[in-house]
Amino acid sequence: MGSFKLSCRPRCLQVSRVALVASVMLALFQLRAQAQGNERPTEREHPTFYRTKQIDGLSIFYREAGPKDAPSLLLLHGLPSSSRMFEPLFARLSDRYHLVAPDYPGFGHSDWPDPKKFAYTFDHYAEIMNHFTEALGLSRYTLYMQDYGGPVGFRMALAHPERIEALIVQDAAAHNEGLGANWKPRRAFWANRAANEATLRTNLLSLETTRRRHVGSDPNVERYDPDLWTDEFAFLNQPGQADIQSDLFYDYRTNVEAYPKWQAWMREKRPRLLVIWGKHDLSFELSEPEAYRRDVPKAQVHVLEAGHFALDTAADQIAVLVRDFMQTQK
């Protein structure tokens, strides 16, 4: 025990969480009285805020940073991540841009309604995300879409093209050829869900899959923070998650059916388009980034030394690409 003087009163021998918190609160009062803060008022110019908003009866979590009168970037995340994947961009772009990144229902820190009572479909996600932008007063924005962010974002763009300043596609597919050999068991699941449910769940939700989505074919595994997939796998293991993700992935077939519609829209509207791709991405074929140029000939296409979650390792480069793209928009 050394020189430590125990000053415990009888009350605190009956330890409970209430007593623990209460004793800390008491200490805090003393502390506030004692503290002679010599802190100068410091201003973090553009801190990130972690907020929630009620949308269609659900608590939707989102990150927000940057000046609200600056051009807005709406960042839509992939499977099985959350707005967390955009932290590296928030750190690099919030001086000049208004960044907003929501978590979809069933992901991250948004509500996870029971799949019996809530339709986990991409149509539904796009509808809720449109309501989310309306609630925030976002009337015009550039979409940054990664993975699942593609099917959500393209639906939002087709529903409200007037809101779209430009599109940034990062490792998100919109062409059937982009779904290669590893989509075979997934296509089988779409064709016959009951027979392929167990295979799909392993294929989609295992720790190994979760890790491989990040590292992909990158030989430099030391560039990847294991927290990334540990965080995602912890979410995927929560009660109810497997059912949610299975329902949503079953609906992914509707994306493949909608690809021609999105392509036609891009050909017609010729939106300003920046395509960023990690060359170690094993989720989609490496032909996919160039495929966008067929729809939008002026698309800028950049294939980087990175994986499916390219921001894991190429955040500096991507921030520069996004900055240049946003600046030449005017």
């Binding site: 125990l6 330890v15 409970s16 004793s23 008491l26 502390l31």
Partner: peptide, 24 residues
Amino acid sequence: SQGWNPIQTYWKEPTGANRAALRD
């Protein structure tokens, strides 16, 4: 701070009950 009180209790009397209390 006094937030250490339950932990100090366990130092003084390292009983199962005092250990279990720290699971909070």
